[in-house]
């Protein structure tokens, strides 16, 4: 008999569990959050396609029992765009990491956002390259340490949500592995949004990020996110000195605008109609 909760039995390949992630890695919490969002929305499993790239985060597609596609580094969104255009009826969900999405796949990311294609992207942001040994990523905060920045990075980090909004995404939100219920709610709203949705999920990496930056173990990282996450609406009312050292969570952007697959299909229909009229 397979192990696990009713949710695990329904939506996970439990013969693949336990997963390979380190003790206390936030990725497991976020992966469960994606599945809970799908369960809450009562989506048909056969109509969901989970696409991932390369890295710790991208292992998630192997554990989740949907149509899944584990692709090449940074290219999850490129494959997902193909999947969505070929099968617009599928609910396409991309699971990717901070490095996979904003470094190696940075171009795919901004262009998927610009097109506003109906894909929900969940970025598992552990602020470091975990799988390859703790190199700093575009999301590693300035002056923090990675194996490739032993004295601290001099590269300012991306604000992934601002990047996503600037590039044209129609739904953008950020939460953390600690705030798992809020995260599930944002993923649900992202899936429901017809357009490109980005949910940045801050994940604790105790093995590399936590240890190298002396931020403690899994529980310490969870407590850090608990104590330092500041809701964007609450932040608007706070004086600047109360925001020092905090990071913003919440819904940053939500707008209705033309979606790529629909617009593409309109062109196809228009040209087909014109051609049939000319024949």
């Amino acid at each position: 008999m397979s192990l696990g909760s009713p949710i695990v039995k329904e939506y996970f390949r439990s013969d693949r569990l336990p997963h390979i992630w380190c003790p206390g890695c936030g990725h497991g919490v976020i992966m469960r959050g994606v599945v809970m969002a799908i369960d809450n929305l009562k989506l048909d499993k056969k109509k969901v396609c989970v696409v991932s790239g390369i890295g710790c985060s991208s292992r998630a597609s192997g554990y989740m029992d949907f149509n899944t596609l584990h692709t090449t580094h940074g290219r999850a969104l490129a494959f997902a765009t193909g999947v969505k255009l070929a099968n617009p009826e599928l609910e396409v969900i991309v699971v990717t990491g901070d490095g996979d999405c904003t470094a190696i796949g940075g171009n795919h990311f901004i262009h998927a956002a610009r097109r506003n294609i109906d894909i929900t992207t969940i970025i598992f942001n552990n602020k470091i390259y975990g799988m390859t040994g703790g190199q700093y990523s575009p999301a590693t905060p300035l002056h923090e340490v990675g194996t490739t920045a032993p004295y601290g990075t001099v590269d300012p980090d991306f604000d992934i949500c601002k990047l996503a909004v600037g590039a044209g995404s129609s739904y953008v939100a950020r939460s953390t592995a600690y705030h798992a219920n809020q995260l599930i709610k944002y993923i649900q709203k992202g899936i429901e949004n017809k357009g490109f949705s980005v949910i940045e999920a801050i994940s604790g990496c105790p093995t590399y990020y936590g240890r190298k930056n002396k931020k403690g173990d899994a529980v310490d990282l969870m407590n850090y996110y608990k104590d330092n996450a500041l809701d964007i609406k609450a932040a608007e009312k706070l004086p600047e000195d109360k925001k020092v050292g905090k990071f913003l969570t919440g819904e940053f952007h939500h707008e209705a605008k033309p979606e790529y697959v629909s617009e593409y299909m309109k062109i196809v229909e228009k040209v087909q109609k014109e051609r049939s009229e000319n024949e």
Binding site: P6, G24, A180
Partner: peptide, 14 residues
């Protein structure tokens, strides 16, 4: 516990 367990190793069941 179930909400935040990264390993899906603790849960409630009817």
């Amino acid at each position: 516990c179930e909400l935040r367990c990264p390993d899906l190793a603790i849960y409630l069941e009817e």
